[in-house]
Design a protein around this nucleic acid. Sequence first.
DNA 1: TTGAAAGCGTTACCAT
DNA 2: ATGGTAACGCTTTCAA
Lengths: 326, 326
Amino acid sequence: MASHAGVSMTTVSDVVNGKGRVDPATRQRVLDSVRDVGWRPRRSARALRSGETGIFALCFPRREHGVQDWLLNADYDMALVAACAAAAVDSGRQLLLAPRPTDLEDLARLDVDGVIIADPQEHDPALRILDQAGIPTVTVERDIRRDDKWWVGTDNTGGANSALDHLTRQGARRIALLTADERWSWFADTTAAYRAWCADHRLRPLVRTINADDPRTSAAEAVRSLLRLKNPPDAVLALPQGSALGVLDAAAAAGIGVPDDLKLIAGIDSQTLMVSQPPVTAINQQPMRIAQAAVALMIKRVTGDDVPGPTLVATDLVVRHSTASL
Amino acid sequence: MASHAGVSMTTVSDVVNGKGRVDPATRQRVLDSVRDVGWRPRRSARALRSGETGIFALCFPRREHGVQDWLLNADYDMALVAACAAAAVDSGRQLLLAPRPTDLEDLARLDVDGVIIADPQEHDPALRILDQAGIPTVTVERDIRRDDKWWVGTDNTGGANSALDHLTRQGARRIALLTADERWSWFADTTAAYRAWCADHRLRPLVRTINADDPRTSAAEAVRSLLRLKNPPDAVLALPQGSALGVLDAAAAAGIGVPDDLKLIAGIDSQTLMVSQPPVTAINQQPMRIAQAAVALMIKRVTGDDVPGPTLVATDLVVRHSTASL
DNA sequence: TTGAAAGCGTTACCAT
DNA sequence: ATGGTAACGCTTTCAA
């Protein structure tokens, strides 16, 4: 390449990196050669030289069923992935999709500038390994056992409050919560917010923990039992992805009308909730904003900027027919 | 690292690469040092040396609205991404998510062993650039203007035939097709298959091209006009993602019962079709198998193996209530 | 069984 | 304004 243009490697490097010290004529000659030869810089060589790969990794939890289903099949995850990739590209970087690193072997493969961990579990082992290896990490949602400011998360408390207030405004007097495994901050924080809200309003909390791996069926079961209470709920906040459909199933089976006899809000939005009968009001967790915030935070972390604390992203209540007042 | 273990770089390299020539004792000593020092090989250095990055890129079309929505919001794409990533990892590689390269700048950033192009358009410019740069490429679905065997695709013809046969078996006599821009092979091939099937069955084809960017509304409009025909269809095969819901909308608005008066099959499956009223029979395009095939093909391409021709993946008809017979 | 040295492509530094 | 050289961390080749 250098020889084709009749200049030194240094000059080529200066030209492609826009260093001002090259003579305009030389500069043009080099650029022409670059086009002619079809030359392009090798990322690996640059990475080796600079110590930076220009790549962030996004790691989803591994499911137990096998590698096939790393990613939850939720609309939320799709938006998160797409927006992370877009944000990475906007910053001149790229996004690698990887499974959670579980051992040093995995780490060896994962030669990136930073790792974004989606939905960390309590004491997430991947985080321990990454910390140990000194790889900059940012989590999407927080590891509930980790004291750390490098995370971006949904404002679960605000989301819960706006949902509960909305239900109250629509006439609900006894609101049940369907939650799941509290090792995830989403469930833990929202449940805490729900209890606090109930205390504020002098209401008795009505919480059922369901199985997030089989949300529809287990939500339906939970609602069936709730409806048999002597003082049954007139509204449900159904957190886990997919659980709202189970609530609809149970209501339909019991001849309970939604929203007339039972109002319903889903804790996370998805396309199915727009199509269901009736369409279900949902908390939009703003995956795109979360993704942008995560990448922005990662950039701060790798460039050495400090941050005062975690980033909270406000939710947005998408009102649909399942919470219409009569 | 080498000095910590008291051996040469060569030996370290041989140990971590499992070359058999090292003495077991030495080997163990090196492994211990690796653990102690927390050393891990740098991918960039290996890549520089070997010329292989161990990374494949998956490039989705850019939408016009901005970088935010590269990925279509379909379940199909989600599954494709996840399964490509999984397949890449299974082969010891990793998957990078990138926008379509549009110029040489983009290519410079994209230092990967191969690029998987999802849903190429007619004469996709990204393919031209990649070919020009000599970067191995595989497409998911085929560029209809490209004569090439390095693609994996859905068996659109088989899918169309099984859908049409199923409709016929369920009593349909006049089947309409909703398709879209035939620059995509999916629409082009399925439409051709539909016409051939009609010819075989001595039926007059009834085709409407709708706007895939606004599928629900434009499908509803198309169906509304179809229902006004003197000889209206009693079944619809609605190809574009989301169009089946528009068909349901139009039918409901016109007081036409599905499946009683109008049977419906969606050309691509999604979660919403399981929830809609009624649930809609759909062609499962097997995104996971497509993804596995794409990565497998890419591996063949980069390792120099030849292939006889493109890979076709069979579809699977998921029967739901919208095609029940009376 | 092990080691020394060259070289992958790039950029920083020091010379000219 | 430009060039030479070293160095980034690894693997391959050749030598001991």
